[in-house]
Design a binder for these strands. Structure first.
Length: 275
DNA sequence: AGGGAAACCCGAACGC
DNA sequence: TGCGTTCGGGTTTCCC
């Protein structure tokens, strides 16, 4: 279930060669194979393949949940959604089940996009704003002040949890991290955004940063076997702890639905005291 | 404006 | 044991 921390971990590996994987910076793409057509969020596969062949990988970044690979004259974006994964290996390695797309480099290595649930997508665009133009600020960007964050909250009249999940409001927060952050900040997931005061907003921003940094430090979360990811799932405070005691007060954690999403919270610590 | 539902997927977990 | 059913993750799109 890749969200921001998982993406960040993979980006670091691709860019700096973490986790034992070689960096792919500077490599030349000699061919592209597409095993599952819908992986490419692009109307024309032929154009996609022709356009990317011969391109060189310049820089690797992250914006929100998107992996952003800058090429010589285009931008490749990859969204892993829940079950996507990337690996770098020799082109002679056997392919694995659920490998959906791979890029072969001139030096004999390849980058493979594996995605059991076929949710992930890949884009090739000229203008990065086509993909990331509407994303909200990065929560880990230090220039996002608690005051600015509070102001942004006031411009909406929405339940706080769906707002946190809205990538136009804030980029990179997914279901696990919003539950964890709201618990840390002791805010009910259905609180309306414009009712949060400055102190609560500051608490919430700090909590979001804390859980994201924890996730990154532990190489991400995974609620199931699909993603070969990290250890954060062993540190959930509320997520998937329905009925288990709250770590603050011992009350049983409840699970409700908010904005169509499974939502875990402590009914005693996160009181719905709207306005 | 904001909320709800449906669609996209498939493997795990559950019920019988 | 072996079926069939339900669920959930992120996002978009459509409808009220």
């Amino acid at each position: 279930m890749p969200e921001l921390p998982e993406v960040q971990t993979i980006v670091s590996a691709l860019r700096d060669g973490g986790r034992g994987a070689p960096s792919i910076s500077g490599k030349q793409i000699v061919s592209t194979k597409i095993a599952w057509q819908k992986t490419v969020a692009h109307p024309d596969l032929i154009t996609f393949q022709e356009k990317i062949t011969g391109e060189e990988i310049r820089e690797i970044h992250r914006r929100g949940k998107f992996i952003w690979i800058k090429l010589r004259s285009a931008h490749l974006f990859i969204h892993l959604r829940m079950s996507g994964d990337l690996r770098v290996e020799p082109s002679t390695s056997p392919l694995q089940s659920h490998d959906r797309m791979w890029f072969e480099f001139s030096d004999g290595l390849r980058l493979v996009f594996n995605d059991a649930r076929k949710f992930g997508r890949v884009w090739l665009v000229d203008d990065p704003n086509q993909i990331i133009g509407n994303l909200g600020p990065e929560p880990l960007d230090e220039t996002l002040s608690p005051e600015q964050f509070h102001e942004r909250l006031l411009t909406y009249r929405r339940q706080i949890k769906p707002l946190l999940l809205d990538q136009r409001f804030l980029a990179g927060v997914g279901n696990i991290y919003s539950d964890e952050a709201l618990f840390l900040a002791q805010i009910h997931p259905r609180r309306l955004s414009h009712t949060l005061n400055q102190e609560e907003s500051t608490r919430l921003l700090s909590a979001i940063r804390q859980v994201l940094e924890e996730g990154i430090q532990k190489n991400g979360a995974s609620i199931d076997w699909v993603y070969r990811g990290g250890e954060f799932q062993n540190s959930f405070r509320v997520y998937q702890r329905t009925g288990e005691p709250c770590l603050n007060c011992g009350a049983p954690i409840e699970r409700i639905t908010v904005g169509q999403r499974g939502t875990h919270f402590c009914p005693k610590c996160q009181i719905f005291d709207c306005d």
